[in-house]
């Protein structure tokens, strides 16, 4: 993750899902609370991203996520562990 560049990241799969729930521009460095992604919206992002309805979400890990970048990394790793990527 490049700390210096505030590149817009809403063009990939994760980013475009986040963009559905957020009304302000954001980067990987954006804090989730700062861009208004509350815990309920966060759950909706996760549910929208993960295709396997039987897959479990680790709520404790979810609670640790602070930035868009962390959310992206976590989603990709969970999806990979679930055996599929969107």
């Amino acid at each position: 993750m490049n700390q210096a560049v505030h590149h817009v990241t809403s063009t990939d799969a994760v980013g475009s899902i986040i963009a559905r729930f957020v009304r302000v521009p954001f980067t990987d460095n954006s804090g989730l609370a700062e861009i208004g992604l509350d815990s309920m919206s966060l759950v909706r992002v996760v549910v929208a991203f993960l295709p396997d309805t039987g897959q479990e979400i680790d709520a404790a890990a979810l609670a640790e996520l602070r930035t868009v970048g962390e959310l992206r990394g976590w989603l990709l790793s969970v999806a990979a562990a679930g055996g599929e990527t969107p």
């Binding site: 759950v43 909706r44 549910v47 396997d52 309805t53 897959q55």
Partner: peptide, 11 residues
């Protein structure tokens, strides 16, 4: 606190 675990439970 919401304690749902599986992706499908959110529906």
């Amino acid at each position: 606190l919401l304690s749902r675990r599986t992706v499908g439970s959110f529906d």
